[in-house]
């Protein structure tokens, strides 16, 4: 790991100012992706701005309408939260399935969705539930937030402060984890909200998380696993790598989607 200047601001304004003043700054939350990345010298920022001490980013609030997860809330916290389990149990289950216990003890919602790893779990929940990503500057709709591999609508001086997930009538996440890393080889999050059905796929797309409109249409007519029998998932635009080929991933999307729908029952 190359050396860098380390900062630990106490508020958002300071964090943004430090990032703006840095030649090549990055924000650090739990560090479960960034630190390994730095260690592999895949990145060599001039400044690391540790936002873990910033006030106001660690709250978890739930109501009958929505669950608001602060950017610094750890996966382990979401996984066991009675409020999240009551309002959106699929979200708690998703958090409980991220990596391993030690990573869940450090990794944060904000870090996950700001990084937008194509095999991360949280992006599927954001997109399928139609969550709102809240930043220090604005609110961004899920459909406008993810813009490609490790890419988001976030600007350089923008920090995720929270995500607001609407409470679904039914929702479930089914994942086929890579057995070593537990990243999603394929993960499918299915949600029924206000009569509409949204399906988001992670782990598979060569541009990261994406919605599956044909599945959504089929499920809107009949919210049952069998409704997906008529949907063919093409391998076009899916990743092939040492873990799985595009055709295998295409097959898994169908299987995981059915499992998720079945789990909604």
């Amino acid at each position: 790991m190359y050396d860098f200047n380390y900062h630990r601001p106490r508020d958002l304004a300071d964090a943004v100012r430090l990032r703006s003043a840095a030649e090549d700054g990055v924000f650090l939350a739990g560090g479960m992706t960034l630190i390994p990345t730095l260690r592999l010298r895949l990145a060599s920022p001039s400044d690391v701005i540790d936002i873990s001490g910033v006030d106001g980013l660690s709250d978890l609030e739930a109501s009958a309408e929505s669950v608001r997860v602060g950017a610094l809330v750890r996966h382990a916290t979401v996984a066991v939260s009675a409020d999240v389990k009551k309002r959106i149990p699929a979200l708690a289950a998703l958090a409980d399935g991220i990596s391993d216990a030690q990573v869940r003890n450090r990794g944060t919602l904000g870090g996950s969705i700001a990084n937008n790893d194509p095999a991360a779990d949280y992006p599927a929940a954001i997109l399928a539930l139609g969550a709102t990503v809240m930043t220090n500057k604005r609110e961004i709709a899920a459909d406008d937030y993810f813009t490609g591999l490790f890419d988001t609508a976030l600007e350089a001086d923008e920090i995720v402060t929270a995500a607001r997930f609407p409470v679904a009538e039914a929702a479930a996440y089914a994942k086929f984890p890579n057995p070593a890393s537990r990243y999603a080889l394929v993960g499918v999050f299915v949600a029924r909200i206000g009569g509409a059905v949204r399906v988001a796929v992670t782990g598979a797309g060569d541009q990261g998380v994406f919605r599956a409109p044909e599945m959504e249409k089929a499920l809107a007519g009949n919210f049952a696993p069998d409704a997906l029998n008529s949907v063919t998932v093409a391998a076009d635009g899916l990743n092939s790598d040492l873990h799985a080929g595009a055709e295998y991933r295409a097959h898994l999307i169908g299987v995981m989607a059915k499992r998720a729908v079945a789990a909604c029952a």
């Binding site: 380390y6 630990r8 650090l28 560090g31 479960m32 630190i35 390994p36 260690r39 690391v48 540790d50 873990s52 382990a76 391993d100 216990a101 030690q102 990573v103 003890n105 450090r106 070593a180 890393s181």
Partner: peptide, 29 residues
């Protein structure tokens, strides 16, 4: 492993087990 997978470096930080190969000393201030 040096890559946050094997868990040999686990320590408790404020009671939570974490992989100390993926935490900066300064983060433990």
């Amino acid at each position: 492993c040096d890559t946050a997978q094997c868990g040999a470096c686990c320590v408790l930080i404020d009671g939570d087990s974490v992989k100390s190969c993926s935490v900066l000393a300064l983060q433990a201030e």
